[in-house]
Amino acid sequence: MNAIKFGLLYALTAASLLSIVAASQPVSDSTRVYASLPSRIEINVPTQHEDLQLQNCSPARQISVTGSVEVKSNLIWNLDVAGSTPSGRMHGTGDHELHNSMTLVAQNPSGGPVVVPGTESSSPAVALLSNIAPGDYSGSSAIGLIFGQLFEWDDYADDGYQLTVALTAGPA
């Protein structure tokens, strides 16, 4: 009789232990996640560089002024430039224009110099920077620009010359 009781007790204990061990096993599950990343390009001229002033203009002198542009892209991209006048030269208030075109140089990364083309040029836009990969900047997209203008003796003294340079970033 005792042997039967002992056997039953042993079986129950063993079953309990087995069930506890089996149920204590970790449970895992997983899920898949998708995302679509669209192509995107942003360009921005900082406010302080929207209006640039060429200082100390004088005949036979090359005058430069520093500006910048910020480009962000997840594609390989180009940076094109174009001037707002038909010739691409600075235009005066008195219907005069300078004899030399403005030049543009990019500092970081280096690009140019390019002669700023006009709106009536056969190629109104010129690539200042070409085939820039998204990772080329290591997160920084600020590009230093140097606008250069040569004044000659035959340029008419005017109250003021101006030119708007359009900077366009697009897929390469």
């Binding site: 997840n74 594609l75 998204p134 900047y137 997160g139």
Partner: peptide, 11 residues
Amino acid sequence: WVDQPTNYTTR
């Protein structure tokens, strides 16, 4: 910005 524009997945 250096990530390519395309479809991505993970588990």
